[in-house]
């Protein structure tokens, strides 16, 4: 079976407070970079797996993102798939 690298990007939904992002925005300004309007933080999960097709790898990992990697109350995610 072909092998794939699936990347799951999990981030806070729009409108959900991101105090860590706000603090980082302040820190970026403090090292001299102006004009930062916002920073949103998140996580990337890089998953390697064997699957019959890219489509099936994506569908499975979307379920994993729904059930475990994200909390749908506060987070959104996007998934990308690349064949290894």
């Amino acid at each position: 079976m072909p092998e794939f690298t699936v990347k799951v990007y999990v981030r806070r939904k729009e409108g959900v407070l991101d105090p860590e992002g706000n603090t980082i925005a302040g820190a970026i300004a403090s090292i001299g970079y102006k004009g930062i309007s916002s920073v949103r933080t998140g996580k990337i999960f890089i998953i390697r797996l064997e699957a019959p097709s890219a489509d099936s790898a994506r569908k499975d990992m979307e379920k994993v993102a729904d059930k475990l990697l994200s909390n749908p109350i506060i987070e959104d995610y996007t998934v990308t798939v690349e064949q290894v």
């Binding site: 959900v16 407070l17 105090p19 860590e20 603090t23 909390n71 109350i73 506060i74």
Partner: peptide, 16 residues
Amino acid sequence: TESGLLPGVLVRNKSL
């Protein structure tokens, strides 16, 4: 809350 047995979620303290 993570289990869905109670509503809502506990996020990072406002003060970090």
